[in-house]
C-alpha cells in the first residue's frame, strides 16, 4: 500500500484521534496535516510496512505534543460542538460530553483502542507505558464514563 492509499484509509480515524488529544477541530486538522507531511517524508524509510498504521498514529501523537510545546491545549466549548439532534443519538451525545470531561491521559488509550483497533500492548508502546498500566487506564476510563453517564439516564435522559 502506497502512502496516499494509507492516508485515504486512515485519515478519518487519525483526525478523530487528534481531536481527542487536542479537543479542538482546527488544531486536530492542523496536527494531522503536519503529521502526514512528516509521514510522507519518512515513509520511504519505513521498514515495517505492516506497522504503518500504528506508525501514522504515533506521528500524529508526536506532532500534537510538539504543538503543545508552544501552546496550551484548548478546550472546545459546547457552542462549537456538533451536537446531533436525533433523539436516538441522545445517549451518544451524553457519552461525548462525558468523554470531554475525561482527562486526555484516559481518553487517549480509549481512542487508540476503539478508533485504531490497537491492542493493549500496542497502545502501551505508542504512549510509552506498560501493558498493565494501559489496561488500568482503560478500565478506569470506562468506570468513570459509566459513572458520568449513568446519573443522567436515571434522571430520565433517555425517556
Amino acid at each position: 500500500m502506497g502512502f496516499e492509499d494509507l492516508v485515504r484509509t486512515h485519515a478519518r480515524d487519525l483526525y478523530r484521534y487528534a481531536y481527542w488529544l487536542a479537543r479542538d477541530r482546527q488544531q486536530a486538522e492542523d496536527v494531522v496535516q503536519e503529521a502526514l507531511l512528516r509521514g510522507w517524508r519518512a515513509f520511504p524509510r519505513l521498514r515495517e510496512r505492516a506497522a504503518a498504521k500504528s506508525w501514522l498514529f504515533s506521528i500524529v501523537r508526536r506532532e500534537y505534543l510538539r504543538a503543545l510545546g508552544s501552546a496550551a491545549p484548548q478546550t472546545e466549548s459546547l457552542d462549537t460542538m456538533d451536537l446531533p439532534d436525533e433523539r436516538q443519538e441522545l445517549f451518544g451525545v451524553e457519552m461525548r460530553d462525558a468523554l470531554m470531561a475525561l482527562p486526555a491521559s484516559y481518553a487517549e488509550p480509549l481512542a487508540l483502542q476503539l478508533l485504531g483497533g490497537f491492542s493493549c500492548a500496542e497502545i502501551a508502546t505508542m504512549i510509552g507505558t506498560t501493558e498493565g498500566a494501559t489496561m488500568t487506564r482503560l478500565t478506569r476510563a470506562r468506570q468513570a464514563l459509566k459513572r458520568l453517564v449513568a446519573p443522567r439516564e436515571r434522571a430520565g435522559g433517555r425517556t
Binding site: 483526525y15 486538522e29 457519552m95 468523554l99
Partner: peptide, 16 residues
C-alpha cells in the same frame, strides 16, 4: 455508545 461518541464528525472531504 462509546464508539459512536468517539467517532466525532470528520470535516467533509478531509481524507481527500
Amino acid at each position: 455508545a462509546l464508539r459512536q461518541a468517539l467517532e466525532v464528525p470528520v470535516p467533509e472531504g478531509f481524507a481527500e
